[in-house]
Design a protein around this nucleic acid. Structure first.
Ligand SMILES: [Mn+2]
Ligand SMILES: [Mn+2]
Ligand SMILES: [Mn+2]
Ligand SMILES: [Mn+2]
Lengths: 218, 218
DNA sequence: ATAAATTATTAGACTAATCTAAATATTTAT
DNA sequence: ATAAATATTTAGATTAGTCTAATAATTTAT
């Protein structure tokens, strides 16, 4: 059994180590809103418990056991987010903080029943894949809008940035999951993208930054 | 904002102080599975925070603010239990421990939405009333089976003991909420009760102890 | 009314998780 | 290759919650 704190560290290491690259102390401190010294303390502890491989001054990676726990926390987080949106009618910008608490409820049986209750959803409200009970994850073929050419289209399937203001902004522009967009123009001087949503007449313009954070499938 | 531990103390004081009687240190220690010394420490802290009125060597009662929090924790506990049974199909003997964790999820909005999602249930799976969002509680006119006379009948509406073994025992005898029982005989020598369930031919016998812990409405 | 038993509080210590400040290692720039 | 900047770790404190052992207050029994 892990404490909430340990689970949060494991989850964060997992998310930062895209493809098993070692994660640094400062990266963790920044995301976990704590100090580097505290991170070092916790890394020693998790290393003791064989949940991570940690080398001083070098970085940290998850062991198989640690990774399993991390994926399970991610599973719980995303299933609860799905529940909050689909069953309790919260909006996609409202659910993250609640899921941060709910992800630490320990019962495996509870999460599996929740999964069944919702008919085994594959993606959470932000388009992130939900690991199944064995930790298997489906990967979308995502591409940010910023990588589309003029006249290319795609279906919005995920976001790279989860902050409520960004999600609310997308909602205002009708840039929500499932909607189809088509790139009309890419402005030369700042790479901002002009596009249409769901074949509408209406052209909208988004910054290069925003375009990088909206993911589409084709 | 309170910690989990503080919430558990407040909830326990609330439950032990039926009708505002002061609660003792040892009572709390027993139920909270801790030591009297730890209880004293926490009582000082809760008193500082004005959530309880505490007099050394005398006992403790809740302030209005403390009571409000306690009732809210009870509300969350019972709503989650209802959710687990009605939506996720857990049995009534399986849900308490999960609800012990879920009751500490802080969002008020979440609990209110959950309440709405389930259409404002009045009683939890054990027959205990669920306080509404303003802290109002409906009280059943409960009576234990042990107080019924021969030939009297009633509908099972609650239990006084929540341990899984007891609940499983009741289930085995079909003594579940909503079922009607009729007292056939009360044995003189040990006050055990012979009764029928839902007009069945089948007579079952339960101890005096069990009869005290099953509550009926007439 | 005194002694004995019970109940409750205090004193002092421990663990988990955190912090600041100081020291050390590594990386980058000159 | 050395100095400067950055990143990381260690040392030492702090807070919440808990514990055991010792002390004090209250209640019960004689
Ligand atoms: Mn989230
Ligand atoms: Mn998400
Ligand atoms: Mn319960
Ligand atoms: Mn209950």
């Amino acid at each position: 059994m892990q404490t909430f704190t340990e689970e949060n560290y494991l989850k964060t290491i997992y998310k930062l180590s895209e493809g098993s690259a070692p994660v640094s102390t400062n990266q963790l401190a920044a995301i976990l809103n704590t100090k580097a010294a505290s991170v070092t303390d916790m890394l020693k502890k998790l290393s003791e418990k064989k949940l991570i491989d940690y080398t001083r001054y070098y970085g940290v990676t998850l062991t198989e056991v640690g990774k399993k726990i991390a994926v399970d926390v991610v599973r719980r987080h995303r299933l609860w987010e799905y529940f909050l949106v689909e069953k309790l009618n919260f909006k996609w910008d409202e659910v993250h903080d609640m899921a941060e608490e709910l992800e630490h409820i320990s019962s495996t049986e509870l999460v599996d029943r929740l999964d069944q209750f919702m008919d085994y959803p594959a993606y959470d409200p932000h388009g992130d894949p939900i690991p199944d009970k064995h930790g298997r994850i489906k990967h979308h073929e995502f591409k940010p809008i910023s990588q589309l050419d003029v006249d290319e289209s795609g279906v919005i399937s995920g976001v790279r940035e989860h902050s409520p203001p960004f999600l609310q902004y997308l909602e205002k522009l009708n840039l929500m999951l499932g909607n189809q967009i088509r790139v009309i123009e890419i402005l030369a001087y700042d790479q901002s993208v002009v596009l249409t949503v769901n074949q509408s007449e209406n052209k909208i313009s988004i910054s290069k930054e925003a375009a990088k954070n909206i993911l589409v499938t084709s």
